[in-house]
Design a protein around this nucleic acid. Structure first.
Length: 466
RNA sequence: GUCUCCUUCGUCUAGGGGUCUAGGACACCGCCCUUUCACGGCGGCAACACGGGUUCAAAUCCCGUAGGAGACGCCA
């Protein structure tokens, strides 16, 4: 039987980075096994689901080159089917109507909590002999109360629980809508899902779901519960840890290949390999190598990987991506200059945002000067800059990097100062800060006129200030 | 509280009885390169949670303990 897996996100919030990993693992598993990767949007909570979130799910998957097979299933369109299954189950004796009101249940729950016991539905209506007038009943599963249930989990191994720990879960709410537990089982069955790979927060739900499969007389899929991603403090990754949505990472300037590679290595490994391409991932991926222990999200390692993939990308494609982060129009001439400086700025960038930022030195004069520049703006430096301007005038255009470099070195020797003194003051004048690619490279790219203009502005600014 | 799962450097991990004085990567520190910052190169620091077994031999197998996490909804 060929493999069919699914990714079933709920559009009640922005797609969590942990969900993205679940999608990735499912996709890799399907592609590795030559099976199908299906998508199902679990939008039954109409109050909290939004079209915007649904759109983002598609968008992020496409961004990560995670393609799905067949048409995405919209869960809310299948409610009638879920309902039918629940009602059939009542007919076959696998489920029953329960007339206990939420208020009654709340009282019992409170009492259980008070006496220090864990709450479980007590089965008041289980025999079907109780009907309360004027109450819309729910449908509950008549689950096994003796024996044990074992899930042979592909990641976690065999996990067994006493059936007495489980209670009769609600399948259909009093308003006639199906619960999550029912919907997942019915949909997975109807979609022919063979392997359910999801976060291990669902592991204990699995026992309940298995009971539903059995009550319906359906064969169960295989399960693989992968550990969740935690924040740096070891708790479930959440908003307070910073970026949690996949969209956030895109906006922070991370490349899709970075995200895939990083997420894959979180909890899964292939020997000592760190840099893994998508095709290698497909070739190597297996559930057996997924670790059982949860992994913490490490932003530093993500950045390092991103820096690696930025260097890997060709200039054209990275420029396209950078444009999302430019806060101004970039004309063809400017584009040309950025392209010339690309290699230099790629080496320094951790994110595409860094890259877009760094590219600005080729595009425009500094908007303001960092305080640090003052160290290289003493009278001596200003005088030296005057000389630099004179010196540059003598060099014919187009001005070469080595030429300026040699000329400035000569100037340094002549004035008996270290090269760093002149280079840094030029840097301050050209960039407004003391960190940038080679100043000689910048001069050769932006040209004589622009160099002169920027240095003059700097001199003017620093003279009037002092 | 009950149930379930987890536990190797700060972090991600390799390892599946002897090849482990525990390997790699990120981070950190130092040196080299150098006009700054990076990049790159070289080197360093740093871990088998604890306690009992089993065995000639345990990071590896078993049992406890401790710690952590998740699940216990008419949410998904």
């Amino acid at each position: 039987m060929s493999v069919r897996v699914r990714f079933a996100p709920s559009p009640t919030g922005v797609l969590h980075i942990g969900s993205v990993r679940t999608a990735l693992f499912n996709w890799l598993f399907a592609r590795h096994n030559g099976g199908k990767f299906l998508l199902r949007i679990e939008d039954t909570d109409k109050m909290r689901s939004t079209d915007e979130n649904t759109k983002l799910i598609f968008e992020i998957l496409e961004w990560l080159s995670i393609d799905w097979d067949e048409e995405a299933v919209i869960q809310s369109e299948r409610i009638a089917k879920h309902k039918e299954v629940a009602e059939n189950l009542v007919l076959t004796g696998g489920a029953y109507y329960c007339y206990c009101s939420p208020e009654e249940l709340a009282v019992k729950k409170e009492a259980a909590l008070k006496s220090g016991k864990s709450y479980k539905y007590d089965g008041t209506c289980r025999n079907g002999d109780r009907i309360a007038e004027g109450v819309n009943p729910v449908i509950r599963l008549k689950s096994e109360i003796t024996g044990t249930t074992t899930v042979r989990d592909l990641v976690q191994g065999d996990v067994t629980v006493e059936n007495s720990q489980l209670d009769d879960l609600v399948l259909l709410r009093s308003d006639g809508t199906p619960t999550y537990m029912l919907s997942v089982v019915v949909d997975d069955h109807d979609m022919g899902v063979t392997h359910v790979i999801r976060g291990d927060d669902h592991l204990t739900n699995t026992f309940r779901q298995v009971q539903i499969y059995r009550a319906c007389g359906w064969s169960e899929p295989q399960f693989g519960h992968i550990p969740l991603i935690y924040g740096p403090d070891g708790a479930k990754l959440s908003k307070r840890h910073g970026a949690v949505s996949a969209v956030d990472y895109r906006e922070l300037g991370y490349l899709p290949e970075t995200i895939s590679n990083y997420l894959l290595r979180l909890g899964w490994s292939h020997g000592d390999d760190e840099i893994i391409s998508q095709s290698q991932a497909i070739e190597w991926f297996d559930l057996a190598s997924v670790g059982k222990s949860p992994a913490r999200f490490d932003m530093k390692k993500l950045q390092n990987l991103n820096a690696h993939y930025i260097k890997q990308r060709d200039n054209e494609s990275i420029f396209e991506y950078m444009q999302l982060f430019f806060r101004r129009e970039v004309d063809d001439a400017q584009r040309e200059m950025i392209m010339q400086g690309m290699q230099a700025i790629k080496e320094r960038a951790k994110t595409v945002v860094d890259l877009a930022d760094a590219a600005m030195v080729y595009v425009r004069a500094p908007i303001e000067y960092d305080d640090a520049c003052n160290t290289y703006a003493t009278k001596m430096h200003i005088d030296l800059l005057e000389e630099v301007i004179g010196m540059i005038k003598d060099i014919p255009e187009p001005i070469g990097e080595d030429e300026v470099c040699n000329a400035v070195k000569e100037l340094a020797t002549k004035n008996n100062v270290k090269l760093v003194e002149i280079a840094q003051s030029i840097r301050g004048a050209l960039c407004g800060k003391l960190v940038s690619p080679s100043v000689f490279q910048i001069i050769s790219i932006i040209g004589k006129k622009e160099t002169e203009k920027r240095i003059n502005s700097f001199i003017h600014e620093k003279r009037t200030n002092s």
